[in-house]
Design a protein around this nucleic acid. Structure first.
Lengths: 286, 286
DNA sequence: TCTTTTTTTGAAATTTAATTTCTTAATTTT
DNA sequence: AAAATTAAGAAATTAAATTTCAAAAAAAGA
């Protein structure tokens, strides 16, 4: 029922979609998975009969940020396969609540872990830089992503930023209209194809704000293409009837990172104000 | 038969033999093994307080051919050992954004994992039962827990429940006033001592609603004592300056479980309505 | 204690690997 | 068939790992 987070399964599933060179690479990896972690792009490209560039592009195509990340993910997967933990991956009729809880826990843990395969070091640095320089930060996500936007907004408010969010398109419009050059707009959409989010992101860009996208690594999605900075989520898509649970975990993991990075960067400068807030909170304790 | 020593064990064994720089590197690896696979020689050397050359030499010293090989070996080992959770509050001055990201990821993963230590099978079953019988479900959390409440509300609305939430005390009052016997009120407060949440929870109880608490396992907290059903969060140690990030992860993990359990229980009965919603969503695709 | 020798270390240079850019080739669309 | 789009590899760039080498620290011998 719940789809695998497994790299090899993902490759197999997408096999028809792949282009000629990608197919060669995919086939080679499927057949020699255990060798790949010890290879370089040059070796793999030579063995598969494609170019190094295609190897790197292939990684993005399957939603993994870099060749090195693919190698690490493969090692993990092959190690796990040896251990046979995979009975977690399927929900069964006779599952008790506690079984289901354990399965959810496993999936969420794996989802958080998978974020390391899609995050790009430099994009993260760019994001940190942009946020550090921003006057205002807006967050926007709808449906399942609204809660992530809310969480992010709360966190950055705590840091002393002028921050806002709303799951409502019409409320966002005037907020975005007031963005200025150097301000930051964070668009949260796992698919990268949510119309409302896209439209507001374009508007924010027109206002000269820096647009940070928190979205699935999918080079063909409109949000991915539009954004100034891309913080990519792993593709943890699950049963379409259930909807994505784990993807919120990955969104929040990235938001936590942004928060911690900003906090760390501000350093002791803000700690005083921070403590003031805290004391007041304790005093008013509700 | 000679037992194959793991890398970490091997490092520990040889600790006395190491030179000064090697010792620093060994210590860092022992203490942050899970971070090393995503590091470069430069990062590791900086974090450990030694040079890149020493990192490479260290690998040879423990009988591993290259730094890359060490990283792969560590991944294998950690995947098998799968987390010995000790390591919170691990932020250092010189951490780069990417370092911080990896640390957050590790902490969040560990937090999700830790949920398994505090959840009680029977409480979970009671919660599932109560929700199945409920007409309405309310969620209430303030501050950092508001986003969790929002997420939960969205999920249960998708399942066809009459569900509401607000981070605003005054908005909650009339909502709770309309609760009837058998309805469910879910109070989300990690500390279990948030005044607003407590007051509303008491009110809900007076209305004969079933009060489910999502709160830290702490038998002396008022919310823990008041609640009909307790779904307990692990006590994720938190830096008080930073505030809890990981605790939201644990809240959401439990919410995901409740959602999945309810979904599972409803079974195919609702799938039709579910699909209708989905088709409409696709049609209106925004 | 004071050389001398040996070992350890990190800075800089080199080599190797990964990624991006740019151009050409192939494919699809009109 | 022409135009537009997409795919692919060669070459250039950037980043990572490794080696070299000179200086510092420690050990050995006077």
């Amino acid at each position: 029922m719940m789809k695998q987070l497994s790299i090899l399964a993902k490759i197999e599933n997408q096999m028809e979609r792949f282009s000629r060179a990608e197919k060669k690479i995919a086939t080679y990896i499927m057949e020699h998975a255990e060798l790949v972690p010890n290879m370089t792009t040059k070796e793999l490209s030579r063995n598969a009969g494609a170019s190094e560039a295609s190897v790197v592009r292939f990684c993005k195509a399957i939603g993994i940020g870099s060749f090195t990340a693919l190698k690490l993910a493969l090692v993990r997967e092959l190690t796990i396969a040896d251990m046979n933990i995979n009975d977690f991956s399927i929900i069964e009729k006779q599952d008790t609540p506690y079984d289901l809880f354990n399965k959810v826990t496993y999936v969420n843990k794996a989802a958080v872990e998978a974020t390391t395969t899609t995050i790009d070091k430099r994009e993260l640095e760019k994001a940190a830089e942009a946020i550090a320089k921003a006057g205002k930060i807006l967050f926007y996500g709808v449906g399942g992503s609204a809660a992530s936007a809310m969480d992010a907004c709360y966190k950055f408010t705590k840091l002393g930023y002028v921050s806002a969010m709303s799951p409502d398109f019409h409320t966002m419009l005037p907020l975005v209209a007031n963005l200025e050059k150097g301000d930051v707009f964070v668009a949260i959409s796992t698919s990268g194809r949510t119309k409302d989010v896209l439209e507001i992101a374009r508007f924010a860009k027109k206002q000269d704000a820096t647009v940070i996208a928190i979205t699935k690594l999918d080079t063909s999605s409109p949000l991915y293409k539009e954004a100034n900075i891309k913080l990519c989520l792993p593709d943890v898509e699950q049963d379409h009837r259930i909807g994505s649970m784990a993807s919120r975990m990955t969104q929040l993991n990235i938001i936590d990172a942004l928060y911690l990075i900003t906090f760390h960067r501000m350093g002791s400068l803000v700690l005083d104000k921070f403590h003031e807030t805290r004391e007041e909170v304790v005093r008013l304790r509700r």
